[in-house]
Computed example of a mutant assay.
Amino acid sequence: MSNNYPYLEVNKRMHGIDWLANKEDYLNKVKGTETDQEFLNTIDEILRDINNGHTHILDRDYVKRLRKAYYYSTKDLPANWRVLLFETLNSELVKNCYNLVLNWRNNWWGRYWP
């Protein structure tokens, strides 16, 4: 996080939250969770301390809706940010993480069809 997120010092100055200094507190909160829902709520709470509206934990249904929306909004477009987002959402890592078993396949020009 300290190597890849450039706004930690800004967050510290603007909001008084030293995210890296809170690491042990965050770890203890996560270790104290007993259910998947508690874990997700705790991670969400920790991420809110970053004060970045683009940083979220996405649930499975939301990821499925995003994949569908970006598939249909990108199928006739050249490579752009929507295509990159769709390809990320359709990656094996994301599909495995969210337990998405879909019948998506590559067609002859490398795009995906349901």
Score class of each variant (00 low, 15 high):
Met1Ser: 11
Ser2His: 09
Ser2Ala: 13
Asn3Phe: 14
Asn3Asp: 11
Asn4Gly: 15
Asn4Val: 09
Asn4Arg: 13
Tyr5Leu: 03
Pro6Ser: 14
Pro6Tyr: 10
Pro6Glu: 11
Tyr7Ile: 01
Tyr7Phe: 15
Leu8Cys: 03
Val10Met: 10
Asn11Ser: 13
Asn11Ala: 12
Asn11Ile: 10
Lys12Asp: 06
Arg13Pro: 04
Met14Lys: 13
His15Gln: 12
His15Glu: 07
His15Tyr: 12
Gly16Ile: 09
Gly16Lys: 08
Asp18Trp: 05
Trp19Arg: 00
Leu20Trp: 01
Asn22Asp: 08
Lys23Asp: 06
Lys23Tyr: 11
Glu24Met: 09
Glu24Gln: 15
Asn28Pro: 04
Val30Pro: 07
Val30His: 03
Gly32Ile: 04
Gly32Asn: 14
Thr33Leu: 06
Glu34Phe: 09
Glu34Trp: 07
Thr35Phe: 05
Asp36Thr: 14
Asp36Arg: 12
Asp36Gly: 11
Gln37Glu: 13
Gln37Pro: 03
Gln37Gly: 02
Glu38Cys: 00
Phe39His: 05
Asn41Met: 06
Asn41Glu: 14
Thr42Tyr: 04
Thr42Phe: 02
Ile43Cys: 06
Ile43Arg: 06
Asp44Phe: 05
Ile46Trp: 03
Leu47Ser: 00
Leu47Gly: 00
Arg48Tyr: 14
Arg48Pro: 03
Arg48Lys: 13
Arg48Val: 11
Asp49Tyr: 10
Gly53Asp: 12
Gly53Ala: 08
Gly53Val: 04
His54Tyr: 14
Thr55Gly: 06
Thr55Arg: 02
Thr55Cys: 02
His56Gln: 04
Ile57Thr: 05
Leu58Cys: 08
Asp59Val: 11
Asp59Gln: 07
Arg60Cys: 09
Arg60Pro: 01
Arg60Glu: 13
Asp61Glu: 15
Tyr62Lys: 12
Tyr62Arg: 14
Val63Ile: 13
Val63Gly: 05
Lys64Cys: 00
Lys64Gln: 04
Arg65Ile: 08
Arg65Asn: 12
Leu66Pro: 04
Leu66Ser: 10
Arg67Asp: 01
Arg67Thr: 05
Lys68Tyr: 10
Ala69Phe: 14
Ala69Asp: 13
Ala69Cys: 12
Ala69Asn: 15
Tyr70Asn: 02
Tyr71Pro: 00
Tyr72Ser: 03
Ser73Asn: 14
Asp76Lys: 14
Leu77Gly: 03
Pro78Gln: 11
Pro78Asn: 09
Pro78Leu: 08
Ala79Asp: 13
Ala79Tyr: 09
Ala79Trp: 07
Asn80Ala: 04
Trp81Phe: 12
Val83Gln: 09
Val83Ser: 02
Leu84Met: 14
Leu84Tyr: 10
Leu84Asn: 15
Phe86Pro: 00
Glu87Gly: 04
Glu87Cys: 08
Glu87Leu: 07
Asn90Pro: 05
Asn90Arg: 03
Ser91Ala: 07
Ser91Ile: 02
Leu93Ser: 07
Leu93Ala: 07
Val94Met: 06
Lys95Pro: 02
Lys95Asp: 07
Lys95Trp: 03
Asn96Trp: 01
Cys97Tyr: 07
Tyr98Ala: 02
Asn99Arg: 11
Val101Met: 13
Val101Arg: 15
Leu102Ile: 06
Arg105Asp: 12
Arg105Met: 10
Arg105Gln: 15
Arg105Phe: 09
Arg105Ala: 07
Asn106Thr: 03
Asn106Val: 01
Trp108Gln: 15
Trp108Asp: 15
Trp109Pro: 00
Trp109Arg: 08
Trp109Ile: 08
Trp109Leu: 04
Gly110His: 04
Arg111Phe: 01
Tyr112Ala: 00
Tyr112Leu: 03
Pro114Thr: 07
